[in-house]
Amino acid sequence: MSEVVETVKGVVEPILAEHSFYLYDIEFVKEQKSWYLRIYIDKPGGITIDDCVLVSDEVSEKLDEMDPDPIPQAYYLDVSSPGAERTLRNEKDLNDVLGSYIHVSLYQNLEGQKVFEGDLTEVNSDTLVLDNVAGRKTVIEIPRDQIAKARLAIKF
């Protein structure tokens, strides 16, 4: 993790704890000619625009007070929710969304498919179990080592 991200994380976490929010991720990236500091936050029930504004104002103020400046170049600060279809990156993320509808992409075909959507009913060290896959009343066990990406999905 970059030094900027580590420094910002130290500033952000106490602010989030004060408001009962949690940190989902931080990015400091250059896109074309501009730098972006993106802070993704969440809370049970979801983040509002007002929550993002509150955190943005407080983080901006704290970063501006720091000497030396932890980010000497110009950058845009963006505080937002990780989104309705956020990536499920680790065990905690998966366990937090048990019972939710998710999208899973695989490295190779399983039962003739590389993509599955369904209700996450079980998470263990070897597999994820999805129920109601693709609208059918079926259950599938997906080996964890075959999963390329898992994310929340919106059920239509």
Rank of each mutant, 00 (worst) to 15 (best):
V55T: 14
K43Q: 14
L54N: 10
K137F: 01
S125E: 15
N90A: 11
D131C: 06
T138P: 00
I142Q: 03
V59Y: 12
Y107D: 10
A74M: 12
I47A: 13
I147P: 01
N109P: 00
L152F: 06
E111H: 08
P82Y: 13
E141T: 13
V53T: 13
I142C: 00
Q108S: 08
C52A: 12
T127S: 11
D50C: 07
D119K: 14
V104L: 08
R86F: 01
G83V: 03
S81L: 10
I102Y: 12
A134K: 13
A74D: 15
E141K: 11
A134N: 13
L130D: 12
S60P: 01
D67H: 12
Y75V: 01
V139Q: 15
I39Q: 07
L110I: 02
D96Q: 02
I39P: 10
A148N: 02
D145L: 11
V55A: 09
S125Q: 03
P72R: 04
E111C: 06
V123F: 06
I142F: 00
Q146V: 02
S100H: 15
D145E: 14
Q73V: 15
V133A: 13
I49Y: 08
D119E: 13
D57M: 12
V97R: 15
V129L: 11
L128Q: 12
Y40F: 15
I47H: 03
T121H: 03
L152G: 05
Q73G: 07
R136S: 05
E58C: 06
L98S: 06
G83H: 04
I102N: 11
N95C: 02
L77N: 06
V79M: 07
E141D: 12
R144D: 04
F116P: 02
Y76H: 13
P68V: 01
I147R: 03
D42I: 05
K43P: 01
S125N: 12
A148T: 07
K137T: 05
I147N: 00
N124S: 10
D126F: 07
N132Q: 13
K149D: 14
L94P: 00
Y76P: 00
A134I: 02
K137Q: 07
L77R: 03
G118C: 03
I140D: 11
L63Y: 12
